[in-house]
Every structure is written in C-alpha cells, then in structure tokens.
Write a protein that binds this DNA or RNA. Structure first.
Lengths: 144, 144
DNA sequence: TTATTTCATATTAACTTAGTAGGTTTTATG
DNA sequence: CATAAAACCTACTAAGTTAATATGAAATAA
C-alpha cells in the first residue's frame, strides 16, 4: 500500500518544473541535481509525462522541458495515475477486467469503495498549484 | 498502491469467523472452502492473527479458531496493519526510521499527510461489526 | 490408537521495483 | 560545417515482494 518512487519522483519533477519556470526550458540534469534523483531514471519518468502531453520537450543544447499547462490544471491524481497506474486500493475496483466474482456477495467491497473515495477526495482535489504554494511557504519558514 | 491478498484475505477470514460463531470453533478448512482461498495460505495468515491475540486457536479434532473479542472491537485498520504492515502511503511517514532528509523542505509531504489521514479516517472507523452488518444486508438482498 | 486439527519452517515461480547502461537523434552555437 | 549538449529510446539487471506450495511435527478428541 505504497506510492512508488515513480509517482513520488514524478510529483517532485512537476513541482520543480512549476517553480523553475523562468522562461528557459528546464534541463533534466538540473532537476536531478536539485531533487537528488538519478537523471537517467528521471528521463524515463518524464518520457511518460511528455507522451501524455503533461510537459513539452525542447531538444538540443539549451533544451529541456516546460509544463504545457498552468499548475492549477494538474491534479496530483492525474500525475500519480499516469505514472503509478490506478490508485484503487484493490484490483476488483479497477473496471470490468478485474471484476471479482464474489463482488455481489462480499461485504469487504464496501470498505474498498469507501477507501477508494477517500483517496480520490485527496488526490483529485489537490493541484500542482497547491504544491507550489506549500513549497513557497516552506521556503519562507526556512529563511526566517 | 494496492492492498495485498494477505490483508484482503485476513479481513474475509475475520468476517467469516464473526459470522460463523455458532459456538464450535471454526476450522481453516471450512473458511477456505467458503471463501475460495488456499487453506495452507490461510494457515499462515491466521497464525499472525493468533500471535497477535486477535483469534484463539483450539488444537486437535473438532478444533479450530474463534474471535477473542466482540466484532465491534476490531477495526479494519487493526487487521490490515497487522497483516500488511503500515498503511502509510509513503515510507517517510512511518516514523523515525525512514525519515526523509528533505522532509522540512519538500512540499509533497503535505500531500502524503493528507492522504494518510484520509486512509486512516476510513480504516480506523470501520469495524468488523460493520462488515458483518453489510454482509447480512447483502445476503438479504440476494435472497429477496 | 487413530484421525484430525493446528503449528512451524522451508522453498519457489512469477512479478515488481528502482534503477543502470549504452547508444541514437536533434539542434544551438562557434 | 563541426561540435557539444541536450532529449530520446531500448535493453538489461539485482534485489525484493507476492502468493502461494510442500513437508512434516505437535496436540488432542473420539
């Protein structure tokens, strides 16, 4: 019941892009340095974000990445689901494929539904803009 | 971000024990048959529940297991944490051991805290008695 | 005494995680 | 035009986890 590094790094990567939006594209190398994450691994993660249109890449020297949308347009859920896959706590909740034959008889499904709703209520309401705001507040605290 | 079979089976096992409390101890073999789960695997899971004092075992013929407490005394969280380990969505939230060095600078921790609270608010308020109640309602629906 | 049950430990195949490795393509700049 | 800096692409891998199976020992009711 853990969010893996892929999801966690994707979130920090997007947050890094949102904060370092000075005009020039942001290089993987710099994100890797700032976040203390393997650059090669970040390449793979950002590739997913790129293909989904979450970021735009500029190739060649002085290249890098930029967000395609305003930070408030990305929810944490969008980023996590893209990189982690479904956030449903059990597979039988993920649609027709994994439907459980005991579904209509098994009461635990009600627990899983409530848990699923609780998770969604957090990840689908918090946006990248919220993370930026919290990050700014943290930096302020730190500098006082 | 999934609950594994251990946790899911433990919950169904405890629910089965709560429902089949006719006085005689309940055998693993019968739970396995009713739930469609490998008996040998259930043995391992119930061993954990036994050592934690959640169930009491009676050995020998006509032996089996019984709950030690009233169903409303067990929360889903107690059962899941015992079998799954911590339900925190990220390791850096699990106490001093896994503390993240970036904690005080990284805004994502706030998201994880909110997610953790949301998960707790479900699993720590739903009891085995609730599951029994829901199960009874399901059986009624089915028989109408 | 026997059969039935729990109890204990070891093993395993398949899968996932968290990267590393090595190279190709694009393109700004000198 | 040559070079270097960046993104891009695919394959590989060590370690860990999951979801069991396998084998047998210990306890005990009949």
């Amino acid at each position: 019941m853990k969010i893996s590094t892929k999801g966690r790094y994707a979130l920090r990567l997007m947050l890094d892009l949102a904060i370092n939006n000075s005009g020039e594209p942001v290089r993987i190398k710099d994100i890797a340095r700032r976040q203390g994450i393997s650059g090669k691994y970040l390449e793979q993660i950002i590739s997913t974000l790129n293909k989904a249109g979450f970021v735009k890449s500029i190739r060649g020297p002085q290249g890098g990445y930029r967000l395609t949308k305003d930070p408030k347009e990305y929810t944490a859920g969008m980023i996590l689901r893209l990189t982690e896959g479904s956030l449903a706590p059990v597979a039988c909740m993920e649609g027709d494929e994994n439907e459980c034959l005991r579904e209509c008889e098994c009461a635990t499904i009600i627990l899983w539904e409530k848990l699923d709703e609780a998770i969604k209520s957090v990840v689908d309401t918090i946006t990248l803009a919220d993370l930026v705001e919290w990050q700014m507040a943290k930096v302020n605290d730190y500098n006082i």
